[in-house]
Amino acid sequence: MRHIISLLMENEAGALSRVAGLFSARGYNIESLTVAPTEDATLSRMTIVTRGSEEVIEQIVKQLNKLIDVVKILDLSDGSHIERELMLVKVRAFGKEREEMKRMADIFRGRIIDVTEKTYTIEVTGPGTKLDAFIEAIDPVAILETVRTGASGIGRGERILKI
């Protein structure tokens, strides 16, 4: 099962490597990991997307909790939540393709943020599945470059991760 785990940790040097090291040392897989400071500069918030059986996920959460720098954890998948990821795609946009690419970007509510004679760079945001769908939808040979941030997540409504 795919899980999306959010955590708050002390914004200390090396905090990220403790989490990354834990995952590699114990053989847990990481689909994506994002991290940035929060409005409180002493805290970082991390979103980890991982896969595993219920037992493995339980261990992951327990092991993360054991890290001294980790302040609080929430397995977002335990309840309703919102997940967003940002992708930048540079595509070939030449001749007839220009119109087609513009149309696809519109369908996916993407925005063209950079234009040259031959290329567009399109920004798409949404759950990972939507970004996958966008990639599926355009001609693979037209894709010059993609970059994705990995998922960020937040609980819906009253589900708040804060200290």
Partner: peptide, 16 residues
């Protein structure tokens, strides 16, 4: 030192 010992300590610190 902090990197080498990370997986075999409860915690470690580099004093800067």
């Amino acid at each position: 030192a902090v990197g080498i010992t990370r997986p075999c300590v409860k915690h470690n610190f580099l004093v800067k």
